[in-house]
Amino acid sequence: SKICLVCGDEASGCHYGVVTCGSCKVFFKRAVEGQHNYLCAGRNDCIIDKIRRKNCPACRLQKCLQAGMNLGARKS
Rank of each mutant, 00 (worst) to 15 (best):
S1Q: 13
S1D: 02
S1G: 07
S1N: 14
S1V: 14
K2L: 06
K2Q: 15
K2T: 10
I3M: 04
I3C: 04
I3H: 06
I3W: 03
C4V: 00
C4H: 01
C4L: 01
C4I: 01
C4M: 00
C4Y: 00
C4F: 01
L5F: 11
L5D: 04
L5A: 10
L5C: 08
V6W: 02
V6P: 01
V6D: 01
V6F: 00
V6R: 00
C7S: 00
C7F: 00
C7L: 00
G8L: 08
G8D: 07
G8Y: 03
G8K: 12
G8N: 03
G8F: 04
D9M: 05
D9Q: 07
D9K: 03
D9S: 06
E10D: 12
E10T: 11
E10G: 15
E10L: 11
E10P: 06
A11T: 09
A11M: 05
A11H: 05
A11K: 06
A11N: 14
A11L: 04
A11G: 10
A11F: 04
A11S: 10
S12W: 04
S12P: 13
S12H: 06
S12T: 06
G13F: 10
G13S: 11
G13W: 03
G13D: 14
G13Y: 03
C14N: 10
C14G: 08
C14D: 12
C14F: 05
C14K: 06
C14V: 13
C14Q: 14
C14L: 06
C14P: 08
H15F: 14
H15Y: 09
H15G: 13
H15D: 06
H15T: 06
H15I: 05
H15Q: 05
Y16H: 12
Y16M: 07
G17E: 13
G17R: 10
G17A: 06
G17F: 05
V18W: 02
V18E: 04
V18C: 15
V19G: 07
V19M: 15
V19C: 06
V19A: 14
V19T: 06
T20G: 08
T20F: 02
T20W: 02
T20I: 07
C21R: 00
C21W: 00
C21N: 02
C21V: 00
C21L: 01
C21A: 00
G22V: 07
S23H: 05
S23G: 13
S23R: 07
S23V: 04
S23C: 03
C24S: 00
C24Q: 00
C24L: 02
C24K: 00
C24I: 00
K25L: 11
K25I: 08
K25C: 12
K25S: 11
K25H: 05
V26Q: 13
V26F: 15
V26K: 13
V26S: 15
F27V: 02
F27P: 01
F28E: 01
F28N: 01
F28C: 02
K29H: 13
K29I: 14
K29L: 08
K29G: 10
K29Q: 13
K29T: 12
K29Y: 15
K29M: 10
K29W: 07
R30S: 15
A31F: 06
A31E: 12
V32S: 12
V32W: 03
V32Y: 06
V32G: 03
V32H: 04
V32K: 13
V32Q: 12
E33M: 10
E33P: 05
E33G: 15
Q35M: 05
Q35I: 12
Q35V: 08
Q35C: 08
H36R: 12
H36L: 07
H36F: 11
N37Y: 07
N37M: 08
N37C: 11
N37L: 08
N37F: 03
N37W: 03
Y38F: 11
Y38E: 06
Y38L: 09
Y38I: 08
L39H: 13
L39C: 14
L39S: 10
C40V: 00
C40W: 01
C40D: 01
C40N: 02
A41Y: 13
A41Q: 08
A41P: 06
A41W: 05
G42L: 13
G42Q: 14
G42R: 09
R43S: 13
R43Q: 08
R43W: 08
R43T: 13
R43P: 05
N44C: 11
N44H: 10
N44W: 07
N44L: 04
N44T: 09
N44I: 02
N44S: 12
D45F: 04
D45R: 11
D45H: 05
D45Q: 14
C46M: 01
C46H: 12
I47H: 12
I47M: 08
I47Q: 11
I47G: 07
I47L: 14
I47V: 12
I48T: 11
I48A: 08
I48L: 08
I48N: 12
D49M: 03
D49E: 10
D49R: 03
D49V: 03
I51S: 13
I51C: 09
I51T: 13
I51A: 12
I51Y: 15
I51N: 06
I51D: 07
I51R: 12
I51H: 15
I51F: 08
I51K: 07
R52K: 09
R52Y: 03
R52W: 09
R52F: 05
R52C: 10
R52T: 10
R53K: 08
R53S: 07
R53P: 09
R53E: 15
R53W: 11
R53Y: 03
R53I: 07
R53Q: 09
K54W: 04
K54R: 07
K54S: 14
K54D: 11
K54A: 10
K54N: 14
N55L: 12
N55I: 13
N55E: 07
N55G: 11
P57V: 05
P57D: 15
P57I: 04
A58I: 01
A58F: 07
A58R: 11
A58P: 06
C59V: 01
C59K: 00
L61F: 11
L61G: 02
L61T: 02
L61Q: 13
L61M: 07
L61Y: 15
Q62K: 15
Q62M: 14
Q62V: 12
Q62Y: 05
Q62T: 09
K63T: 11
K63L: 07
C64N: 00
C64I: 02
C64V: 02
C64R: 00
C64M: 12
L65M: 09
L65A: 10
L65P: 02
L65Q: 14
L65D: 09
L65E: 14
Q66R: 12
Q66S: 14
Q66I: 11
Q66W: 11
Q66A: 14
Q66V: 10
Q66M: 08
A67L: 13
A67P: 01
A67E: 15
A67M: 15
A67Q: 04
G68Y: 01
G68H: 02
G68N: 04
G68F: 01
G68S: 03
G68A: 02
M69A: 09
M69N: 02
M69R: 02
M69E: 03
M69C: 05
N70H: 11
N70C: 04
N70G: 07
N70F: 08
N70D: 14
N70W: 07
G72S: 13
G72I: 12
G72H: 15
G72R: 08
G72C: 13
R74V: 14
R74W: 13
R74N: 12
R74P: 11
R74E: 15
K75W: 13
K75V: 15
K75E: 15
K75D: 09
S76P: 13
S76H: 09
S76G: 08
S76D: 11
S76R: 06
